[in-house]
Structures are given as structure tokens and as C-alpha cells.
């Protein structure tokens, strides 16, 4: 039986790589029995969704001033 720490790390690992059958089973069993880790799993998923949303429309949140742009153009013109 995996402990809570291993379980929460496996939750994050699973977003990068496919867990082995053994780890997937252990994760599922632990989540079924542990309300705290279930909550972590739920919050982790929510934050994933929020972060994906935050980065899905990276606009031009920061801007150079026109003077800075002109200065850069001058430098690049060589």
C-alpha cells in the first residue's frame, strides 16, 4: 500500500507519463480509500485546467514602448 506522499507524487507523474499497471492500480486503490488524497487529486485537476486556460491565450500582456522598439530597430539595422 502506497502512502499519501507517494500517491500525490504519482498523481503529478501521471500527467507526464503513463504509469505502470502496478502503479496505476496502487494509485486507484489508495484514492478509493483516502479522502484527503481524493481531494488533492480533485484540486490538482482543477489547477491543471486553470493553468491550461491561463496559457492557452498568451496574448501580448507585456509591451515594449514605441521608443524601445524604435531603438531596437536602429540597433538591428546595424
Amino acid at each position: 500500500m502506497k502512502n499519501c506522499e507517494d500517491t500525490t507524487l504519482d498523481v503529478e507523474r501521471s500527467s507526464f507519463e503513463r504509469l505502470s499497471i502496478k502503479d496505476r492500480l496502487a494509485l486507484r486503490m489508495h484514492l478509493a480509500m483516502c479522502p484527503q488524497c481524493r481531494k488533492y487529486f480533485k484540486d490538482s485537476t482543477t489547477i491543471d485546467t486553470l493553468l491550461k486556460k491561463r496559457f492557452s491565450h498568451l496574448g501580448e500582456e507585456y509591451k515594449f514602448t514605441q521608443e524601445e522598439k524604435d531603438e531596437m530597430k536602429r540597433k538591428l539595422a546595424g
Binding site: L58, E60, Y62, F64, K69, L76
Partner: peptide
């Protein structure tokens, strides 16, 4: 510079 500088900064 016009097309990409603000995006790159962000």
C-alpha cells in the same frame, strides 16, 4: 520587431 517583440516579451 513590430510583429514579435511584444509576444516574446510576454
Amino acid at each position: 520587431v513590430e510583429d514579435h517583440s511584444d509576444y516574446l516579451l510576454s
